[in-house]
């Protein structure tokens, strides 16, 4: 009895898993399909599944708003912000994980609490400060802000990786006369490389998809892809195919990036707290 129930249940579960995956992925699939249609095909009722694909929309998008310059801004700010944050976070996480004291836990919680500060609460001052410094609509301001908003999560994640390294190994290096710098660069970093990479990956994805500061602080010069897509928010005649094309172009790099790195990403996302 029981065995037969089992045999039936497995294909059922497999089918359900496939169905769920299809439903979750369908909007992305639909976006990619629509980007290959003409504007008229895009709104046809009933919706077309079979049609002659065209790449015209991608050409139009590039002509209309210079997709590439937005893409370069996204790459520079996402990688730049992440690099700055990681460079700041490595020494901090080392100090906390290896030489941690009474206040380490409080400092970590305080850092996390800065993430609870709603960005909109400080929009006005940050906007005015950026204006005064002449940094409005520059990549520099986004790099600084992206570094700051991700620093708490990065410190926390690196802390949880560094804590896993046996203290004895680091002490041995110190006894052999290694300076703090050498101890970090030649002993700690090679041992925690995987963790640092997954932390950086998560940070890059968060920066790439960041919308609030990019929309509010940039215009045409330093605009990132999130801002470019937001500029397609007001309807203008038939625009779904173009919208799909610009969306596909904006998401494709990070989606593919995410697929390749999903294993590392999982470790990163869980703050090292789930194993």
């Amino acid at each position: 009895m029981r065995a037969r129930g089992r045999n039936l249940r497995l294909p059922l579960r497999t089918g359900a898993a496939w169905a769920a995956a299809f439903v979750m992925f369908f909007p992305i699939l639909w976006m990619m399909l629509t980007s290959l249609k003409t504007e008229l095909q895009a709104i046809s009722v009933p919706p077309l599944v079979l049609f002659e694909p065209t790449l015209d929309n991608f050409v139009l998008v590039q002509e209309r708003s210079d997709y590439l310059s937005y893409a370069v801004n996204s790459v520079v700010t996402a990688f730049g912000g992440t690099a700055v944050a990681i460079l700041l976070a490595i020494p901090a996480a080392y100090a906390m994980a290896v030489h941690g004291g009474r206040f380490t836990k409080d400092i970590l919680l305080w850092m996390l609490s800065t993430k609870m500060l709603p960005a909109v609460g400080v929009l006005m001052p940050v906007y005015l400060l950026a204006q005064m410094a002449g940094l409005l609509d520059t990549r520099t301001v986004l790099v600084i802000i992206f570094a700051m908003i991700n620093l708490p999560i990065i410190v926390w994640m690196l802390f949880s990786y560094f804590r896993e390294v046996p203290l004895a190994i680091l002490e041995a290096a110190r006894i052999d006369g290694a300076s703090v710098f050498r101890e970090i660069v030649y002993v700690l970093l090679p041992l925690t490389w995987g963790g640092i990479v997954s932390t950086a990956l998560l940070s890059i994805i968060l920066c790439w998809n960041e919308a609030f500061w990019s929309i509010n602080l940039t215009a045409s010069d330093a605009g990132t892809l999130t801002a470019l897509v937001a500029s397609y928010s007001s309807p203008e005649g038939l625009f779904w195919a173009k919208l799909s094309a610009v969306s596909t172009l904006s998401c494709a790099p990070i989606v593919v990036f995410g697929w390749f790195c999903q294993k590392q990403l999982v470790q990163g996302l869980t703050f090292g707290a789930v194993k």
Partner: peptide
Amino acid sequence: SPFFIMPTV
């Protein structure tokens, strides 16, 4: 995959 899609898209 949906997690990697940017919020505006």
